[in-house]
Amino acid sequence: MTPEQTGSAFSPARLWSNPASRALIALVLVFVLGCVFNADGAFFKLGTHRDTLRQASVFGILACGMTLVIISGGIDLAVGSVLALVAVAFSLMSIHWNWSPWVVLPLCLLLGAAAGGMAGGVTAWFGIQPFIATLAMMVFARGLAKTLSGGMKVSTAVKQADGNYHYVDVPAIFRFIDNRILGGHLSMVTVIFALCAAVAWVLLARHRWGRELYAIGGNEEAARLSGVSVAWTKLLAYAASGALAAVAGLCQAAQEQQGDPEAGVGYELTAIAMVVIGGTPLTGGRGGIGLTLLGTLTIGYLDKILSINAVPEASRLMLTGAIIVAAVLTQRRRRS
């Protein structure tokens, strides 16, 4: 691309050269698909959209954290397990121990951030590849979740001293998170997702730390020689990803009304797909939260459209795989 072109006004070529507009085109295509295969008008019902957003929210929260890490040139495979770990811890503390949400929520976020930060620290200081370090945390956190829960789902059926089970009420904080607002038209988890995206966006776009993440992902050595403390900056990205995985874990537990140590298996891969479909390249240094939002909606709606048209899950998975490849092919940067 020449400087003259960047300065020019609207043109189709310019639109296509911009990753945001390419991601938007993909989303629009999915919407067109939805309008054509509307399953006897189901696609035009408000409730369908509310549910699509609700189902995409947990993944979207993970994808926001994943975006931070991927922009720094890394990857975080641990988010699905951290989600399960926090879901278990949240349920234990809220349902079984009856702790106040004012204590439980900060502890859960801290737990997620610590898990992410540990993986990040191993990457940053020992030079272990992010893939390996977060893979290790993925396995470890899953094990910890199973240990805490004793391998069982942590539900409202609480075992008594006499060995019998007795059902307790779902805690208020669970109900709050799983609530709907605006006359039942918007799920609370979608609001939480929007908040997470907003915070991640502000940090990336307006904070020094965000700029330094881009610099590290774009050229780590140049960033280091420009005075960026590479290790801490990276560690914070993984800690933030862990904290966002914790938020996703809270939402997951509230929606299921239990802490399932088996929850979130494979979620990290969906989150990565959402980031990549949005147009943030795995090579780092580019991309952003806005793109990830588009990617989250694209996958979320695609899944919904296929399911309301009663496409069997087996075919859905194969189609999604094909679409990921197609999307990434169009997102690939053209040689300038």
Binding site: R211, Y214, A215, G218, N219, A222, L225, S226, V228, R286
Partner: peptide
């Protein structure tokens, strides 16, 4: 290799240090 962050803007590079 060691001077610039090529994917970033002129502003981001000029202010990085």
């Amino acid at each position: 290799a060691t001077g610039l962050v090529l994917p970033l803007s002129i502003i981001a590079n000029a202010t990085l240090a």
